[in-house]
């Protein structure tokens, strides 16, 4: 009934086509995974792979089950997740606020830019021992590490996103005599939001890395500490099991933020991303 004028829906059939290809590719991916695991298992059983270097998948699997059944895992997991999420929220908040402040004033941007470039160039992991010295063996040092390492992706994307408002939209708001506040909240910020979310996705993974690295350097609890301990005890099955668990958690966090991204930024054109 409403399709009286111009029609705009060749997109629909195209996405169906993409879905078909994707399904076929997903099957192939799973097949490849099974193949690799089988080869790994066989190579371990016939003694080509030393169990201290690479324990067999079945060994890793049973170690994973064993760890998941133990209560101490959740204690350490809780600590690491707390550090990660606290670091992520504080780091992202600071990144977005500072990104907005820096973008709002060209002079400030030019003055601060050299500092930003230098701080960005610092390999943040190298700061971990310093943070332990400053904040001790507790979670604070790890949170600070997570903040430091997850700050930049969101910060840079916030600045780039706020700059990406096109000239004609600015002119439109100008011609409508928009106040600065309205231009920011109704134009600049929503325009920047897809960029900010892309930054947040990287930042979340980075925050987890920050927390783990912090725990490596000095901690009495957390998954990083547990990894270090098992490695020291040559419990290789459990070391790999922890890596599996960490990967699953990182994946879950990523899926969560991706879901949020799709919910909040429903208008973004994602066809090009696949």
């Amino acid at each position: 009934m409403k399709a009286t004028l111009e029609k705009a829906d060749p997109v629909q059939s195209k996405s169906g086509f993409i879905r078909k290809i994707f399904k076929k590719e997903a099957l192939l991916s799973i097949a490849l995974l099974v193949l690799l695991l089988a080869a790994w298992e066989i190579l371990s059983r016939i003694g080509v792979l030393h169990p201290l270097i690479l324990p067999a998948p079945t060994v890793v699997f049973s170690a994973t089950l064993e760890l998941l059944a133990s209560s101490f895992l959740y204690l350490h997991l809780g600590v690491t997740l707390y550090e990660t999420i606290a670091g992520f929220f504080i780091g992202s908040f600071l990144a977005i606020i500072l990104g907005i402040v820096v973008s709002s004033n060209p002079t400030l941007y030019k003055v601060l830019n050299p500092f930003i470039v230098v701080f960005q160039a610092i390999p943040k992991i190298a700061l971990a021992p310093i943070f332990v010295t400053w904040f001790g063996f507790g979670p604070t040092a790890k949170i600070v590490m997570a903040i430091t390492i997850c700050f930049f992706p969101t910060f840079v994307n916030t600045v780039v996103g706020l700059k990406s408002v096109d000239e004609e939209s600015r002119l439109l708001f100008q011609s409508l005599v928009a106040k600065k506040k309205d231009t920011f909240f109704k134009l600049s910020l929503p325009t920047a939001l897809p960029f900010i979310f892309a930054g947040l996705k990287s930042s979340l993974t980075f925050a987890l890395i920050g927390a783990i690295v912090g725990e490596f350097v000095g901690a009495n609890e957390g998954i990083g500490m547990l990894l270090d301990t098992f490695n020291f005890q040559l419990e290789m099955g459990k070391v790999y099991a922890l890596i599996v668990i960490l990967s699953i958690i990182a994946l879950l966090l990523y899926l969560l933020i991706e879901w949020l991204d799709k919910k909040l930024i429903f208008w973004a054109d994602r066809d090009n991303n696949n």
Binding site: D166, K186, P190
Partner: peptide
């Protein structure tokens, strides 16, 4: 002296807000 309410502008691009 500046943009006025007596005037309405339209550009080459529609510049609709996608959200």
């Amino acid at each position: 002296t500046g943009p006025s309410k007596k005037v309405g502008f339209m550009f080459q691009k529609a510049v609709l807000l996608p959200w």
